[in-house]
Amino acid sequence: MSEPHKPSRWTLWLPLMLFLGFAGLAMSGLFRPAEREVESAMIGKPMPQFTLRAAVPERPGLSTADLADGKPRLLNVFASWCLPCAVEAPQLAALEAEGIEIVGVAIRDRPEDVAAFLARHGNPFSRIGADDRSEVQLGIGSSGVPETFVIDGQGKIRYQHIGEIRPEHLALLRDKLKEAGS
């Protein structure tokens, strides 16, 4: 038999090192709260150019120019076919009652469905644009309904809230609006 060739020592420990790295990573993955939402990368950037027709006759439509009048406001992405959107209705109503302006973007919705939704759950919106092809939704990096964006007076996106607004989220949204206004 020929001279035995011995592998160098540190390479023998390499697999164990790599495995321990994996185990650490897996551990951190297990105990990190599952983050399934995709955040918009548009925070701090101006709203894209768009003009949406009115989703219902009793409110005007929405365009970029409407969002740059010096006043901060909320932009709520919703749809009549979305259940959590109904869940957040009372919170939106409360915000509107405080004098906060909320504009709506109705995703892939028929006028009669939007009207029925508003009749049932209230209408906190000053304007509602109909986004039939997710044009605005894609333009601001929103990946679902409902989502709520804080827009400052210059028409810049300042904050994104993913999912329905629950009562515990109200204070944060008010703070973000205040920041956007200053």
Partner: peptide, 10 residues
Amino acid sequence: FGLRASSVSE
């Protein structure tokens, strides 16, 4: 493996 493999010749 790390402990023993060095004694296993190739």
